[in-house]
Amino acid sequence: MPIHEKSLIRPENIKTHDELVIDGIDVSGHWSTFIESRVISDYNEALQEEISALPGGENIHRCFQCGSCTNSCTVNALNSEFNPRHWIYLIRLGMEEELLRDKDILWQCVSCNKCTYACPRDVAPEGVMKAASHWLELKGHTPKSPSTLFDTVFTDQVMETGLIEESRTIRGFFGLTNQSLTQGWLIEMVKRMIRHLPIEMLMKMGLATILRPKTKNWDAARDAMREYTAEQHALHAKALKLDQVTPKENN
């Protein structure tokens, strides 16, 4: 069955009848399974355009549905619902409602780039996954995913200091996502980590958390990057029409 007809055979669309006769022909039972007829009228015609306006989504229009991305996908091997080919198809057709069914797993792409490696059309599906995840968040369909929260904590720190001091990033992320720093496996790891660590290394790591290492003369770079990011955010908001208030709401 072609991938775009997947929605037709969902359990709620499959009909069997215990006793049904049509034009004198008995169509009862399992041998005469019907698929509910349906009309799609709620296409979002701007969907592909919006997602291709976000970083990573630029080449989505090139896809010819060969399926190499899904076939090579690391996450698909763990969860068959994670299906880049299917989502690219839905986006290109504007089937927003169908796409939203998978909104809570779409962010789980691990960026291994196997899809981008395999893609014969340079769609860069890994980028499309990022663009689609950001689209879901910007449109308010999902809260910021744990991945986006981590990216934000990390990027803020790089912009601020030019460097990453890992324990600060981890503390920031765990705080933001209400995760405990005293989970069993984490304690076990820290125990094994410090068991043989030389004293000077421990001192250095401890000092780094207090002193906060920083790239020298970084402020100008920080400001330039902040400025650029603000410009980009405004452009994205415009492309997704987040900046427009409809006249009705305005009145």
Binding site: P55, D151, T155, N217, W218
Partner: peptide, 24 residues
């Protein structure tokens, strides 16, 4: 006086920021 290359995380926020960080 090096800086972070941007890793995966900055690329996810904006790929061109990562390009800048690595280019520096």
């Amino acid at each position: 006086n090096w800086n972070c290359c941007g890793a995966m995380e900055v690329k996810n926020i904006d790929p061109k920021l990562q390009t800048y960080l690595s280019s520096r």
